[in-house]
Simulated assay, not measured.
Amino acid sequence: MNGMKGLKKKRRIQVILVAFVALATSTALIGYAMRDGINYFRAPSAVVAEPPASRETFRIGGLVEEGTLVRGQGETITFSVTDGGASVPVSYTGVLPDLFGEGQGMVGTGNLVDGVFVATEILARHDETYMPKEVVDALKDQGVYRHAEGEEGGS
């Protein structure tokens, strides 16, 4: 009888140990991903308030500010992304998505270099079904978010 109890206790310790190792592993993996800043999202206001280190890759999202889109030499395009509270200049070399344009939602992945967000990827976003919730919330906070359909007396 006593042998059974000891076995159960030993088994429980093994289960706890395995669970602990699994937890430690997943925590380490998440920490590693965060260290690289993979997909860590920031609104323009947050970037201006606390500029991230140039080696940190993160995502920025908001609206392409009216009057800031400049197609430069070659394939480099510059524009500003805004959440209504602050604007961050963006530089991107490559082909922009078809739906990309001023006043439209966008999400970019890249790094902040000397105050300019150098994007490695740009995605056009048109409504809240595509736009990350953080962007929509940031825009609503600044009072500049407009619903795409059914807007009353829109421009």
Results as ranks from 00 to 15, higher is better:
Gln14Ile: 09
Ser54Tyr: 00
Thr27Leu: 14
Ala53Pro: 07
Leu29Cys: 11
Phe20Asp: 02
Leu29His: 06
Ala19Lys: 10
Arg42Pro: 03
Arg35Ala: 11
Thr25Glu: 05
Val18Lys: 06
Gln14Met: 10
Pro52Ala: 05
Arg35Met: 08
Ala22Met: 14
Arg12Val: 02
Glu50Asp: 13
Asn39Met: 07
Leu23Gln: 08
Ala24Gln: 09
Val48Lys: 14
Tyr32Asn: 15
Ser45Tyr: 01
Ser45Met: 01
Ile16Leu: 09
Arg12Glu: 00
Ala33Ile: 08
Leu29Thr: 12
Thr25Met: 12
Glu50Ile: 03
Tyr32Gly: 14
Ala33Ser: 11
Met34Glu: 11
Leu29Gln: 07
Gly31Val: 04
Tyr32Ile: 15
Ala43Trp: 02
Lys9His: 05
Ala22Leu: 15
Arg55Cys: 02
Thr25Tyr: 04
Ala22Asn: 09
Ser54Pro: 15
Ser26Leu: 10
Lys9Phe: 00
Tyr40Trp: 04
Gln14Thr: 09
Leu29Tyr: 04
Ala53Arg: 07
Gly31Asp: 04
Arg12Tyr: 00
Val15Asn: 10
Ile13Tyr: 06
Tyr40Met: 11
Arg11Gln: 10
Ser54Asp: 12
Ile13Gln: 09
Tyr40Phe: 04
Pro44Tyr: 05
Gln14His: 07
Ala19Thr: 11
Arg12Thr: 04
Glu56Phe: 00
Glu50Thr: 13
Phe41Asp: 11
Tyr32Val: 14
Thr27Cys: 12
Glu56Tyr: 01
Ile30Glu: 03
Glu56Lys: 09
Pro52Asp: 07
Thr57Met: 02
Ala19Arg: 10
Arg11Asn: 07
Ile30Phe: 03
Glu50Cys: 07
Glu56Ala: 03
Arg11Gly: 01
Arg35Phe: 00
Gln14Glu: 08
Ala46Met: 14
Pro52Tyr: 05
Ala49Thr: 09
Gly31Met: 06
Val21Tyr: 01
Val21Arg: 04
Thr27Arg: 10
Met34Tyr: 03
Tyr40Leu: 10
Lys9Arg: 11
Phe20Cys: 11
Phe41Gly: 07
Tyr40Asp: 06
Arg35Tyr: 02
Pro44Cys: 05
Ala43Thr: 15
Pro51His: 08
Thr27Ile: 11
Val15Glu: 10
Ile30Val: 13
Ser26Tyr: 01
Ala19Gly: 13
Lys9Ala: 11
Gly37His: 04
Thr57Gln: 04
Val47Cys: 06
Ala33Met: 07
Asp36Cys: 00
Val48Arg: 15
Ala19Ser: 15
Ala28Leu: 12
Ala46Cys: 09
Tyr32Gln: 15
Phe41Thr: 06
Phe20Ala: 14
Ser45Lys: 14
Ile13Leu: 14
Ala49Asn: 13
Ala22Lys: 11
Ala19Val: 14
Thr25Leu: 14
Val15Gln: 13
Ala53Thr: 09
Met34Asp: 12
